[in-house]
Amino acid sequence: MIKMMKELFTIVGFVALLFSSSATAQGIDRGALLATMCVTCHGPGGQGSKRIPSIDNHSDHELAEYMHGFKEGTERATIMDRHASSYSDEEINLLAKYFYEAKQ
């Protein structure tokens, strides 16, 4: 009985948690929203499009490193330097995290 009650509480707690977390989860994640801009060129999910490189196959660390490199001008680019320079470091990290996690 005690075991059962314990189980019940766990489940009730779990349900409560689900409800409360999905209440906040109702808002659109900023990384996901920012990423909608990238896929216009980089293809659905960032898979790449013709010669436009894919961005869904890097670790979050790697993708962020590229973007920071474009921003600082240390990484060679054709167009991404011109975009990256107007994104904050925080935004770059959010994007890298989003594409990495979306692939997992």
Partner: peptide, 30 residues
């Protein structure tokens, strides 16, 4: 920011952008 391709660029860069243009078209229509 509004930034154009550089005024001085190699043939290769212009070629690269023509390929990106096609990739852009494929991707935005998808």
């Amino acid at each position: 920011s509004v930034k154009d391709s550089p005024n001085k660029a190699s043939k290769k860069t212009r070629l690269q952008e023509s390929k990106y243009a096609l990739g852009w078209y494929k991707s935005i229509t998808a």
